[in-house]
Every structure is written in structure tokens, then in C-alpha cells.
Design a protein around this nucleic acid. Structure first.
Lengths: 145, 145
DNA sequence: TTTGATATTGAAATTCAATATCATCTATTA
DNA sequence: TAATAGATGATATTGAATTTCAATATCAAA
């Protein structure tokens, strides 16, 4: 069993909530998918296997997963909330491939250090930051569009 | 007359569009406001002076200003599209003050350089990026919340 | 001027994702 | 088993973004 599942069970327990088969299944699918999913994306995958699961449940489960620090929202500027895996993924930025839709997570300690310096310089106490670089990967650079 | 106004006139001309008093007034107010405005924000300011101007016109004018490179969208993660001045403001990142809502524009050449390096390292061709740091300024750090 | 072609406007309608509501349904416990 | 609390899925609602549409304004040409 993935660490995330037992984490989720613990989280639900402390909140007085229940592990249902819907929640379990939604978490399974979420963990198995290495992409930035919107609620609708995840719902579409989930309903292929079990068409009885409703979009509302997917929505609510994702919120719970965020509360449990298993998932987190990402904003890639496409006007939809997307979710990514959080557990086991420390702070990171994104390189987002604008043509193929893939992304990679990066951390550059040099950049992080300069960000802190910059904040200190102007008397700013940083709480969180986001840095996303949008561009194309080698494969995509060959494509017309 | 602000440079932006003549820019806008030129833009409209090449597009076969007209400079109306509504557009002119909306641009005036936009330029006079040093904040990240949503359509609604700008509309609320505009209608104080001229209550006959509709929200749709503000919306459309902001889109035109973006096309003319006078304004640009900013996404500060509050789930609304905001607009900032673009003309005369080169690329920059933001330090956003999460309590008082102010922000400053920053450019750190060190960070920019490291970003480019990072991209080169993974064979990624960057097109655009955004980096926003959210935190509190000195004044706000004293406040409870 | 006047006209006619075209662009613009404001109000209202529509869209779309996010979220809330609610009448069941389901598990667990007394 | 009954009672209780939570969960579910269908559907309704919200709110910002965007489009529609009939009325109006603009401007070059007559």
C-alpha cells in the first residue's frame, strides 16, 4: 500500500471521516497519474472504470487530499485549478512544455538563494513563491506548432 | 498626452477601429491607477465618473489594451484576471504583499541568468516565465493579520 | 449637411468551472 | 434492529469571463 493511502486513512480518522471505496479509488487513480489534473480530467479517468462515481465526489476528494497534504493545487495559468502530487515532493518550480503539455519539477538552490536575498534587500518577508517557466522541449521544438 | 494614448490611437487605426470617448476614458483611468486591477475593479472606478459606461466595454477595452501592448494580464493566483501596465515596463517579476495587497515589480539579473542556465541544462527552450513571491512587508509584519 | 457602411455600445444572456444543496444511501454503533 | 452520522450523486447555484443583440455612434464620401 502506498504511503499516501495510509496517510489518507489517518487523516480521515482524525477528522472523523470515513474511507469509502470511492475515496480510495479516486486516490488510487490520482496517484497513478503523473500529470497536472483538473477535477474534470480526474473525473474522466475515474468514470471509465466506475461510471457510478460522480464529479462532486471527485471534487470533494481532491479537496480532502489537499487538506491531507497528499495533493496540492497548481495554477498554470490556464484558468483551471489543477492538482499535483504533494507527498514526497518538496517545494519545486515547474518547467511547463507548452506544446506537449508535459512538465518537469525543478529546484534550483541558486535561484532559491537569490530569491531570499532579493527579499531581504527590500525588507520583504516571503511566505511562498511560485516560478513557472513555459517553453518547449527538444521534441516539440521540431514541430510547427 | 501620455505616450500610451498615441500608441493606442495608432493601434486602433491599424486595426480599423475607432477611438471613442469611452475607450479614451477607460485608458485614462487605467493609466492613472497603479494597481493590479480586475475588470470589475476598473469598472467600479470608471463608473464613478461616468455611470453610463458598461462593464462589457471595460472588459473589451482591456483586451484591446493588451493587444496593443499597453496592458497585460497578471495572474496573482486569486482566481481573477488582473491587468497591469505593460508599456514602459520591461519584463519583471512581482513581490506581492499578501496583507496590504500592494506589490512591487522586480528584476534580478542573477535569477534570470540562473533560469536560463537551468533551461539549457535540461534542453528546454523558455518562451516566458513568471515568478511571484508572496509575503509581507515591514508594516504588515507588525499586524496580527 | 446627409448618407451609408461599419464599428461600438450597454444590458442582458450565456458559458463554464467551481462549489453548494439536498434527498437518498451506507456504514457503524448502541 | 434502529439510530445516527457521514457520504454520495444528481442537480442547482454561483461568479467571473465572454458573447449576443438591438440601438447608437462614427466618419468618409457624396
Amino acid at each position: 500500500m502506498a504511503k499516501e493511502v495510509s496517510l489518507f486513512i489517518d487523516f480521515l480518522k482524525t477528522k472523523g471521516l470515513k474511507l469509502t471505496k470511492q475515496r480510495e479509488y479516486i486516490l488510487d487513480v490520482f496517484l497513478a497519474t503523473e500529470r497536472h489534473l483538473s477535477v474534470e480530467d480526474l473525473y474522466n479517468i475515474v468514470k471509465k472504470k466506475d461510471s457510478s462515481i460522480g464529479q462532486a465526489t471527485v471534487f470533494r476528494t481532491l479537496k480532502l487530499l489537499c487538506e491531507a497534504d497528499i495533493a496540492q493545487e497548481v495554477d498554470l495559468g490556464d484558468k483551471r485549478i489543477r492538482y499535483e502530487h504533494k507527498y514526497g515532493h518538496g517545494h519545486h518550480d515547474h518547467l511547463v512544455y507548452i506544446k506537449c503539455g508535459k512538465f518537469i519539477e525543478v529546484v534550483d538552490t541558486g535561484i532559491e538563494r537569490l530569491q531570499d536575498k532579493l527579499c531581504k534587500r527590500v525588507g520583504f518577508l516571503p511566505k511562498r513563491h511560485k516560478m513557472d517557466i513555459f517553453g518547449t522541449c527538444k521534441q516539440c521544438q521540431k514541430k510547427k506548432r
